[in-house]
């Protein structure tokens, strides 16, 4: 299946792209994080991040379906 990953802030700079479409066999958000963290050599600790699918915060065991839009969110620092 194909999913789109959107990057913001630190992850956008590290990846060098705003978004990318990736083909994945990951079954859930956690699997896609592990795959992406490895492929892009982020070397980051998942515990620092949260994840959103289709603009909604979800748990890491959220099952992925074809066409999903994912965002891995770094710790927020607004306000």
């Amino acid at each position: 299946m194909n999913v789109t990953i959107h990057y913001f802030a630190m992850l956008r700079e590290r990846s060098g792209v705003d978004s990318e479409i990736v083909e994945t066999s990951a079954v859930d958000a956690r699997g896609l994080w592990e795959e992406t963290n490895h492929r892009r050599k982020f070397g980051l600790d998942r515990a620092q991040f949260s994840v959103a699918v289709n603009d909604t915060f979800v748990e890491w065991n959220h099952a992925l379906v074809d066409g999903d839009q994912l965002v891995f969110l770094p710790p927020v620092s607004g306000g």
């Binding site: 913001f8 802030a9 630190m10 700079e13 620092q48 959103a52 965002v71 969110l73 770094p74 710790p75 927020v76 620092s77 607004g78 306000g79």
Partner: peptide, 18 residues
Amino acid sequence: LPVWKKEFFKDGTSEWVR
């Protein structure tokens, strides 16, 4: 709120507030 702040310092460096 999903907003991220990047600080630019006087010494020319910058970093995302982590």
